[in-house]
């Protein structure tokens, strides 16, 4: 008998002791003397037996012979797959590695700068030439009013002429090229 049972329960068996009776099969002498504990032990063993039977039935209902046969077949087929030497897929025959020469040529940065400068010069010249050429269509050629000849470096004369003889003739060509809102509206109607 456990000390705790002897002291706390006045010799009666604890629940744990009753479970031990069922699981170990060891029969304490107290059960022969005490009807109360014998009744509790019987009740406990019935409960445990019921639970065991219910649990086993539950499992047996799922683990049927058919299930086991199918499961065994699957296990064996998985093992056969494991034992089968794995198939190595050969890669296509390796073609000799040939380094393709780079088709383009490297252009030195100096040449790039020269080409950019040349392009700029061509642009300026063509712009100048386009001013000299007559405009096509019906519009009148631009009236270019040149200021009196003066030293290009004489800023004071330039300013003076600008204020004394205001002229925007040089902008007429640009004005002609700019579409007017009125024209656009009329055209859209």
């Amino acid at each position: 008998m456990r000390l705790a049972d002897a002291v706390l329960r006045r010799g009666h068996l604890s629940e744990r002791a009753l479970i031990d009776v069922w699981t170990t099969g060891i029969h304490p002498a107290h059960l022969d003397r005490c009807d109360q504990c014998a009744r509790r032990a019987l009740e406990m063993s019935r409960w445990l037996e019921n639970v065991q039977a219910t649990g086993r039935e539950d499992a047996e209902a799922v683990v049927t012979n058919d299930v086991l046969v199918r499961q065994r077949d699957q296990v064996m087929s998985r093992l056969a797959q494991l034992d089968r030497p794995s198939k190595v897929i050969s890669f296509p025959a390796a073609s000799p590695v040939t380094r393709q020469p780079y088709a383009g040529r490297r252009v030195s940065p100096g040449w790039l700068a020269a080409a950019a400068a040349a392009g700029l010069m061509i642009g300026v010249v063509s712009m100048e030439l386009s001013h000299m050429l007559p405009f096509g269509g019906t519009s009148a050629p631009p009236q270019v009013v040149t200021a009196p000849a003066a030293s290009p470096y004489d800023d004071s004369d330039l300013l003076h002429n600008t204020y004394v003889n205001p002229s925007v003739g040089g902008l007429d060509a640009l004005d002609d090229m700019t579409p007017r809102v009125v024209d656009i509206v009329l055209a859209s109607r």
Binding site: R56, A59, E60, D83
Partner: peptide, 26 residues
């Protein structure tokens, strides 16, 4: 001798399968 190994191992599977299935299910 893998075929023989599997054949022998099948005995172990058969012997322990039901108990294993019950434990796993529980």
């Amino acid at each position: 001798r893998l075929d023989a190994a599997r054949e022998r191992y099948a005995e172990l599977v058969e012997r322990h399968q039901r108990r294993a299935a019950r434990i796993a299910y529980h």
